[in-house]
Every structure is written in structure tokens, then in C-alpha cells.
Amino acid sequence: MNEPVLLGPVATWFPDPIAEVATLAELTELPANRREHALALGIDTVRTAEGMTEVDLAAEAARVALEEAALAAADLDALILVTGRAPQYLLASEATRLQHRIGAIRAFTTAAGDLGCVSVSAALTLAAGLVRADAHCRNVLVVTAAKTPTRHRYRAPMTLLGDGAAALLVTTDGPARWEFVDQIVRSEGKYADLFRIDYRDIGSDDWVEECASESTYSFRLAVESKKRFDAIIPELLHRNGIPDSAIGPILMQNLSAGAFAFWEEALDRPVDKACRSNLAAYGHLGSMDMLLNLEAAAPTRATGEYALLLNSSPVAAWSAALLRRL
């Protein structure tokens, strides 16, 4: 019988500068309807990393996680970096830069990315697979960082971006908040470049996040996402013998207050209050949202209670994860 896969406390790290969304200069450049939308997302403040890179942010969160776990970086068996969408350099390795920065000298090191916000779900599947399959791999550090890739934080017609980082130890022993029970990840390539940044031959100051078709995002992808969750949630629960009634409020990524309302109606499930609180305080943090919300919700879940984490991306990709509170 396989040993249980355990998830330690989530370590988060945020840069000090806090920006009030209502005072962001970029909002004054938007058409009135866009500005009204940005101010109605349910986001009050965001953290701003200014001159820091994603690896800078990731290293800070990784160090906090290792300190809280009383584990030396040199004792890590594996390190997985959830990469952002705009690396500092082409051809260079963000994952091994982080490895060197924190001193994880013997860790198997790799990156998970290319699924947008669902990249963290792919990283957790990989981490769980490593500790289940390799008797010599007892602890894996999953690290994700969020840094706005352009000078614009407002991502029309979806959300507003903040900066920060999170790290989570996946292990077979040691301090743990949750047992990682199971996860399903699905993707659909026809939406692969629905959101994109044209960067070739363009200076980074002029990069713009573009949605190829807002109607496709707002309607077709929304319908597709509901169909996906309607299929994978029952599959996940059924194959683990968990009744639907055993699941409390769901945890989701933080896009907007409107998105939470849509999913509560579409799935007939309440969204955990931690999601709305973190949305208001930090904005959308990409892959980091799921880890931030998981940690914030932990104190409200009783021992033995299950948590359902739903994650999606306009790439498009979807995931449903089942965790048990320890």
C-alpha cells in the first residue's frame, strides 16, 4: 500500500508595496466601461514587486517554507518551479536558477508550466507521483511566483493582477496540513492562444496581454468549463468513494467577485470565504491562488474533512483536486 502524500503548510511571501486599485494610474487610461469593470472586480489592493523577478519572489517563499519545515535546502529530494508566462531570459533555466539561489544542491529540479493557472495543479500531480513512485524521494518543494508580465495589471475582460509567491512541501512525513488524495487535470488545445502576448520584435514596455476573442472567453469557454467540471468532479469523487455530501465549500482561483457568483450558481456549490478575502487583498495571482486559498481555509476545516479544489485557465485547462484535512 502506498504511503500517503502529505502537504505541509503553505508559505507565502509578498513584496511590501501595496497599491490601492482605485488609484492605479493605468485605470485612467482605460475607456469608462473598462475602468468601471476593473473597479467592480472585488479587488481592493494588490502587492507590487517592482524590480524583483519571479525567481526573486520564489526564492523568498521557498526559504520561508524550508524554515517552517525545519528542513535544509540541501536535503530536498526534488524542487519543482511553477514557471510564469514571461521568463527573465529565453533559453535560460528559471528552475535551476532557483535551485542555485536557495542551495538545493542535490534536488531533482524541473519546472511545470504552459497550462496557465492550472500549472500548479500539474506540479502537484508531478510531486505526488515522485514521492509515490521513488523510495528515495521523500520531500518535494513546489514553488510558484506571480509577477505581472506587462506594465498593465488589468487583464480584460477577466481580472486584475497582483504579485507574490508561495511554496509548499509535498512529503511522506513531517509537518502536514492535508493529505493529497487524488487529482484530475484536463486540457483543450483549441484555446491554446486565446490569451497571449506578442513579444517578438517588441520592447517589453510595449507588451500587452490580448484576448483573441472576448466572446469566446466569456461564453464558449465558460460553457466548456462548466461541462468539464460537471464531468470531472463526479469522476474524482466516485473513484475515491467520497460522497458529494462530504465536500464543504469549494476552493477556486481568484479572478473576480462575478466569477465566484457564476460558479456558485453553475455548480450549485458555495465558494469558501477565504477566496473572496484573498481576492480583495491580493488580486489574481495566477497559479499561486490555489495555494494561498488552501492555507487560508485550513483553520476552518475539521480533521478528516475533505476539500475540493477547482482550478481553470483560459489556455484552456481544468483541474479538480481532493484533499483531506489532517
Score class of each variant (00 low, 15 high):
residue 291 L to N: 00
residue 116 G to F: 00
residue 318 W to N: 15
residue 136 H to A: 15
residue 31 P to N: 05
residue 278 N to I: 08
residue 72 A to P: 12
residue 307 A to P: 12
residue 275 C to R: 08
residue 170 V to C: 15
residue 254 N to D: 02
residue 171 T to F: 01
residue 100 H to S: 13
residue 307 A to C: 14
residue 238 H to L: 09
residue 236 L to I: 03
residue 53 T to Y: 00
residue 175 P to Y: 05
residue 193 D to T: 06
residue 41 L to E: 02
residue 134 D to M: 12
residue 18 I to M: 10
residue 268 D to H: 13
residue 219 F to M: 06
residue 75 D to G: 05
residue 189 G to R: 04
residue 241 G to P: 10
residue 61 A to K: 03
residue 217 Y to L: 15
residue 207 W to M: 01
residue 184 I to G: 02
residue 290 M to C: 12
residue 253 Q to A: 14
residue 117 C to Y: 03
residue 9 P to H: 03
residue 41 L to Q: 06
residue 264 E to R: 14
residue 37 H to P: 14
residue 143 V to H: 06
residue 202 I to S: 08
residue 169 L to V: 13
residue 166 A to W: 06
residue 33 N to T: 04
residue 96 T to M: 15
residue 285 L to N: 02
residue 11 A to E: 06
residue 286 G to Q: 06
residue 42 G to I: 03
residue 2 N to C: 07
residue 121 S to A: 14
residue 13 W to P: 00
residue 324 R to N: 11
residue 294 L to Q: 06
residue 115 L to P: 09
residue 109 T to G: 14
residue 32 A to F: 05
residue 172 T to W: 02
residue 49 A to T: 07
residue 164 G to N: 04
residue 153 R to E: 04
residue 244 D to N: 05
residue 152 H to D: 09
residue 144 T to D: 01
residue 260 F to S: 15
residue 157 P to G: 08
residue 14 F to C: 12
residue 65 A to L: 14
residue 84 G to L: 03
residue 168 L to S: 10
residue 17 P to H: 03
residue 256 S to A: 15
residue 243 P to D: 07
residue 319 S to H: 03
residue 260 F to N: 15
residue 223 V to S: 03
residue 284 H to G: 13
residue 241 G to N: 07
residue 106 R to V: 02
residue 69 A to V: 08
residue 42 G to V: 03
residue 73 A to W: 02
residue 151 R to S: 12
residue 218 S to H: 03
residue 23 T to L: 11
residue 318 W to S: 15
residue 293 N to F: 01
residue 69 A to E: 10
residue 159 T to A: 12
residue 265 E to K: 12
residue 229 F to W: 13
residue 267 L to P: 06
residue 284 H to M: 13
residue 167 A to W: 03
residue 320 A to E: 02
residue 31 P to A: 08
residue 152 H to S: 11
residue 212 A to K: 01
residue 186 R to E: 12
residue 207 W to E: 01
residue 293 N to Y: 00
residue 313 S to D: 00
residue 2 N to R: 07
residue 129 G to H: 14
residue 284 H to T: 09
residue 189 G to Y: 00
